[in-house]
């Protein structure tokens, strides 16, 4: 496996001032993003199963990143519509880690408060809260909290499904908690501090 140090990533991207946004996104992305290698072929936009609901295809976002259009990129709904199917990732001829870049853009949009619709960030946050409380995901709590807030009108229609899940024993109404919650909390706290300094 080729390893890429931060220095090499930085050296590649800081040569040009215009690439500073690209560089920022790249540094915040797990693995090596290869964003600077995009040739605008559209494999990603062509592959995307949810492209029909996206304001910009991923390819357009990458061009906008190059152009330094920070707010427009972070405000786009594209990263929130990404379903993480990784079709674009394996097909990309330049090996751009597209799905991971989408995760990075979500994080950046949340921090800059530039998302248009709070459904997705809220869902993620609710999920994170559950995990940070119990160490496990808690579907019932997550679904009921989330639906009450964002899809109250959908609830009556959903009720039979939810009830069905409960009746069939597929949804516990009590959360499970891991034994060493203290340890997990300590790890996540330290990780959050490291996130701020990186």
């Amino acid at each position: 496996m080729p390893q890429m140090t931060d220095e090499r990533v930085r050296a590649r991207l800081t040569r040009e001032e215009d690439l500073s946004l690209l560089h920022e996104v790249s540094m915040k992305t797990a693995g090596v993003s290869h964003l600077e290698m995009c040739i605008q072929c559209g494999t990603c936009g062509g592959s995307c199963p949810s492209a029909m609901d996206m304001e910009h295809t991923p390819r357009m976002l990458f061009a906008m990143l190059r152009a330094g259009m920070r707010d427009e990129v972070l405000r786009s709904n594209t990263q929130w519509i990404c379903v993480s199917c990784y079709h674009c990732v394996v097909r990309c001829p330049q090996e751009v880690h597209i799905a991971d870049v989408m995760y990075t853009l979500k994080g950046m949009a949340i921090k800059a408060k530039l998302y248009q619709d709070s459904t997705a960030p809220d869902f993620s946050q609710t999920f994170v809260d559950m995990v940070e409380t119990y160490g496990r995901s808690f579907e019932f709590g997550l679904a009921s909290r989330h639906y009450l807030k964002h899809f109250p009108l959908r609830l009556p229609g959903m009720a039979p499904m939810g009830l069905g899940m409960i009746a069939k024993g597929r949804m516990g109404i009590k959360p499970k908690k891991i034994r060493r919650m203290d340890q997990l909390k300590a790890i996540l706290e330290r990780a959050s501090q490291l996130e701020l300094t990186s």
């Binding site: 797990a30 993620s124 994170v128 997990l184 996540l188 959050s192």
Partner: peptide, 16 residues
């Protein structure tokens, strides 16, 4: 962390 944690913070997601 499913697909949710990764979209919020990088280091906590991977530490989890």
């Amino acid at each position: 962390g499913a697909t949710e944690y990764l979209g919020i913070n990088l280091i906590p997601a991977y530490s989890l």
